[in-house]
């Protein structure tokens, strides 16, 4: 399914909000270019406008408060109230990201009761080749398992990720998240529009070819 979404479209009406709001909870994976960060601001604003809190787990220093502050202004809401309702935690290593997801996320959900949890570039921390691939895969598997459990509790877990760096190993890490996701979307900026395409097929990890 292809959906186009004008960058200055009315707030909180069209995609990506409509894509998620139909889900009872679950993991939605958005993979694409810089348009991801416009979508993330829209999604955050959507829940903040309903006086909810949003958790933002940041794997690559992606959080940008300014679009959120702008959104608050556009809809006549208090900027500082909006900003105080987004709870952010940054992780810089795959070990930290795993700890954040497996230990801190549950505590954060219990305390702040968000409907929406965003994970910005969580895989960036798992692409670090200084850590052995087996270790990274094991850690990611634990993290994904926790996300799936949280999603079953009725939380919208939105994972935003850029395409992986060109290597078989990076692609297979992304596949682990894809396989756990309930809905998959690719996102692309196209002049003044954001093109969102839903992918239904769950893709298995690519087969290894050639020598390592």
């Amino acid at each position: 399914m292809d959906t186009t979404y004008e960058i200055d479209a009315p707030l909180f009406s069209g995609p990506p909000v409509s894509l998620i709001s139909g889900m009872p909870g679950g993991i939605a994976l958005f993979c694409g270019d810089a348009a991801l960060w416009l979508l993330s601001a829209q999604m955050i604003g959507w829940r903040l406008a309903r006086s909810e809190r949003v958790l933002f787990l940041d794997g690559d220093n992606r959080f940008n408060p300014y679009p959120i502050a702008d959104l608050a202004k556009r809809i006549g809401r208090d900027r500082s109230l909006f900003l105080s309702s987004i709870l952010i935690s940054r992780a810089a290593t795959c070990h930290q990201m795993t700890t954040l997801i497996t230990r801190q996320l549950g505590i954060g959900i219990a305390r702040h009761r968000p409907r929406l949890v965003l994970l910005a570039e969580p895989l960036a921390t798992f692409y670090d080749e200084a850590v052995s691939f087996t270790e990274r895969k094991t850690l990611l598997s634990r993290a994904v398992g926790t996300l799936a459990r949280q999603a079953r509790e009725g939380i919208w877990i939105v994972v935003l990720t850029s395409p992986p760096p060109p290597s078989h190993k990076s692609a297979s890490l992304l596949s682990m998240v894809r396989n756990a996701a309930d809905r998959l979307f690719s996102v692309r900026t196209n002049e003044n529009e954001i093109l969102i395409r839903e992918e239904n097929a769950v893709i298995a990890p690519p087969h290894r070819t050639g020598r390592r």
Binding site: I86, I88, A91, Q96, T99
Partner: peptide, 15 residues
């Protein structure tokens, strides 16, 4: 290995 992650803080605190 360093495993401690940052405690959750609000966006206005982050700023």
């Amino acid at each position: 290995r360093k495993q401690e992650s940052e405690a959750f803080k609000s966006a206005d605190q982050l700023l």
